Computed example of a mutant assay.
Amino acid sequence: MSDLAIGLLSVLLATNTPVALSNLIARQTGISIHIPDPNDPVEKAYQKLLAEDDAAQAEVDQWIKAKQERGDANDAELAALRARIQQRLDQVRQAYEDFLKQHPNHARARVAYGSFLNDIQEEDAARVQWEKACELDPKLPAAWNNLGNWHGHNGSVSNAFRCYLKALELRPTEPVYYENLAITMYMFRRDAAAYFNLSEHDVLQKAMALYRKALELDPENFILATEYAQSYYGFKPPKTGDANTDRKAAEKHFQDAMAAWTQAAKLARDEIERQGVFLHFARWQIDAGQFDAARSNLALVTHSMYDRTKSNLLRKLDRLQAEARLTNALAPPAPAK
């Protein structure tokens, strides 16, 4: 039995389990975490607050879905629905305000309140809560991650990098943090090159490595797998000037992309997602000149939602295949040996 397993057994026998477990993990892994005591009255009030937030958002989603299922609504009905939603969300806002008035130094509540404000498009107010949470508890990774999201959308990209790196430092096993840093480096590759003192090519390789780390930690996540696979569309291997080297690099890029989409196909949760991956297989195969394989994958796409995309790819396939046949027909015969 490992030292950590033995320690966990001791924790189960401890009188103050949350404190004992937190101390054990800090000793064994070097990662300091806060494990709340579920019997603490403040913790109970906080959990009740989160439950109210979740319940309100579920109710609002249900109201919107019901309206959509009923079809078109007149202006008066839409105004009434908006007022009803606003009233319900105001109740949650007031609950957060009341809690923080009593417990102004509760960092996790400020993170949650910030997420609530962000969900209702009050992004600047959300940022205030997350910054306060970081100030109150600098070791709270969710606060740094959320603040990184804010900077990535509204502020300095350099600050986004700094916040994501801090979140990863505090919780290096959280796949979302790797994903967020990967997205930001990929989207803002020039800023990332300056911040990390890397070439743009190296930035992209780093971003792809971060995606792979996220998938390693969350290997069953189809959305993450497709996000990683789609990233291969956004760059090509740099040209070296040597035709043979460039050809091999392009082939590897193609194989890496196909491998990523193959993994996504294995994780598809239904036929719609699976057929969507078949379209990506075909797109890559068309560009690689693998026309028969592309046509086979397109034949597997039968859902009507993909009709337009499938039709466009078939037209491209027919055109490129015809051009290839013409090129081969006009090519001079090989010299006799």
Results as ranks from 00 to 15, higher is better:
residue 14 A to M: 11
residue 103 H to L: 11
residue 46 Y to R: 14
residue 303 H to A: 14
residue 48 K to W: 08
residue 172 P to W: 06
residue 135 E to T: 12
residue 111 V to T: 04
residue 286 I to M: 10
residue 272 I to M: 14
residue 279 L to G: 09
residue 180 N to A: 09
residue 330 L to K: 12
residue 212 R to D: 11
residue 12 L to D: 09
residue 220 E to D: 15
residue 200 E to T: 09
residue 171 R to I: 02
residue 140 L to M: 09
residue 165 L to Q: 07
residue 60 V to A: 01
residue 326 L to I: 10
residue 165 L to H: 04
residue 130 W to A: 01
residue 104 P to F: 09
residue 123 E to L: 03
residue 258 M to G: 05
residue 197 N to Y: 04
residue 161 F to K: 07
residue 200 E to P: 02
residue 79 A to R: 03
residue 77 E to L: 00
residue 146 N to V: 11
residue 180 N to S: 07
residue 236 K to I: 09
residue 11 V to P: 03
residue 99 F to E: 02
residue 59 E to S: 09
residue 265 A to Y: 12
residue 73 A to Q: 03
residue 123 E to P: 00
residue 19 V to P: 00
residue 190 R to E: 13
residue 229 A to C: 06
residue 36 P to A: 14
residue 313 L to I: 08
residue 52 E to L: 10
residue 191 D to Y: 05
residue 13 L to T: 10
residue 61 D to M: 09
residue 42 V to M: 12
residue 322 A to L: 14
residue 86 Q to S: 01
residue 142 A to C: 06
residue 27 R to Y: 05
residue 34 H to T: 12
residue 321 Q to H: 15
residue 204 L to N: 01
residue 314 L to E: 13
residue 21 L to Q: 02
residue 220 E to L: 14
residue 169 E to W: 05
residue 223 I to M: 10
residue 118 N to C: 03
residue 330 L to M: 08
residue 313 L to W: 02
residue 101 K to L: 11
residue 74 N to I: 00
residue 233 Y to R: 05
residue 214 A to H: 02
residue 290 Q to Y: 11
residue 20 A to V: 14
residue 97 E to P: 04
residue 296 S to A: 15
residue 243 A to C: 03
residue 178 Y to P: 01
residue 194 A to C: 05
residue 98 D to P: 03
residue 13 L to P: 00
residue 84 R to A: 06
residue 1 M to I: 06
residue 266 K to D: 12
residue 13 L to Q: 12
residue 224 L to A: 02
residue 221 N to L: 09
residue 33 I to S: 09
residue 172 P to V: 01
residue 183 I to F: 05
residue 178 Y to D: 02
residue 251 E to I: 13
residue 226 T to E: 07
residue 272 I to E: 12
residue 14 A to E: 12
residue 276 G to M: 11
residue 293 A to I: 12
residue 282 A to N: 00
residue 2 S to Y: 07
residue 225 A to W: 00
residue 119 D to Y: 03
residue 52 E to W: 00
residue 38 P to M: 02
residue 211 Y to M: 07
residue 51 A to K: 13
residue 191 D to T: 11
residue 10 S to D: 13
residue 255 Q to G: 04
residue 28 Q to I: 12
residue 114 G to P: 01
residue 240 T to W: 09
residue 41 P to L: 10
residue 86 Q to A: 04
residue 250 A to E: 13
residue 88 R to I: 01
residue 170 L to C: 04
residue 98 D to L: 11
residue 203 V to I: 08
residue 231 S to G: 15
residue 188 F to C: 06
residue 11 V to C: 14
residue 215 L to F: 03
residue 79 A to F: 02
residue 123 E to R: 13
residue 294 A to T: 06
residue 38 P to L: 11
residue 181 L to P: 09
residue 326 L to S: 07
residue 240 T to K: 10
residue 79 A to S: 14
residue 72 D to I: 00
residue 273 E to H: 13
residue 242 D to A: 09
residue 155 G to T: 00
residue 211 Y to D: 01
residue 55 A to H: 04
residue 53 D to A: 00
residue 162 R to D: 07
residue 325 R to C: 06
residue 329 A to S: 03
residue 89 L to R: 10
residue 268 A to I: 11
residue 77 E to D: 01
residue 56 A to H: 02
residue 248 K to W: 01
residue 287 D to L: 11
residue 141 P to I: 08
residue 227 E to C: 05
residue 79 A to D: 12
residue 114 G to I: 03
residue 99 F to C: 07
residue 141 P to N: 13
residue 185 M to H: 02
residue 6 I to R: 15
residue 217 L to A: 03
residue 7 G to N: 08
residue 74 N to Y: 00
residue 214 A to R: 01
residue 318 D to L: 06
residue 253 H to A: 04
residue 22 S to V: 05
residue 56 A to S: 10
